[in-house]
Computed example of a mutant assay.
Amino acid sequence: MEELPVGTTHALLLRDGRTFAQGPAADVLTSDQVGKCFDLPLTLERRDGRWSVRIRRPA
């Protein structure tokens, strides 16, 4: 996610070669959507136009 340009407006998530989610970046690039797409517990944030993702570790 860190490599996405600040001006990214839309996103497409693929899972197993098929569209998992697509649309405005703010709707598609959420912790829930990206986590389900990659089957990982993660937290996705956007600060000052930059995206970052962290894998959540089990407690």
Rank of each mutant, 00 (worst) to 15 (best):
E2F: 14
E3Y: 14
E3C: 09
E3L: 11
L4V: 07
V6G: 00
V6C: 04
V6P: 01
V6I: 06
G7Y: 07
G7F: 09
G7A: 12
T8W: 00
T8V: 02
T9N: 01
T9W: 00
H10C: 04
H10R: 05
H10N: 08
L12K: 04
L13Q: 12
L14Q: 12
R15S: 14
D16G: 12
G17I: 10
R18E: 14
R18P: 06
T19C: 10
F20M: 09
F20P: 06
Q22K: 02
Q22I: 02
Q22T: 05
G23I: 01
P24H: 09
A25S: 08
A25N: 05
A25D: 10
D27Y: 04
L29H: 05
L29S: 06
T30Y: 01
T30Q: 01
T30S: 05
T30I: 03
S31K: 00
D32W: 00
V34T: 02
V34G: 06
K36V: 06
K36L: 10
C37I: 03
C37W: 01
D39G: 08
D39K: 09
D39T: 11
L40A: 13
P41H: 12
L42F: 11
T43M: 13
T43A: 14
L44I: 09
L44N: 10
E45L: 10
E45Y: 08
E45P: 02
E45V: 11
R46K: 07
R46N: 06
D48F: 06
G49N: 00
G49C: 01
R50G: 04
R50C: 08
W51K: 03
W51A: 11
S52Y: 04
S52A: 12
S52T: 13
R54I: 13
R54W: 13
R54S: 15
I55T: 15
R56E: 15
A59T: 11
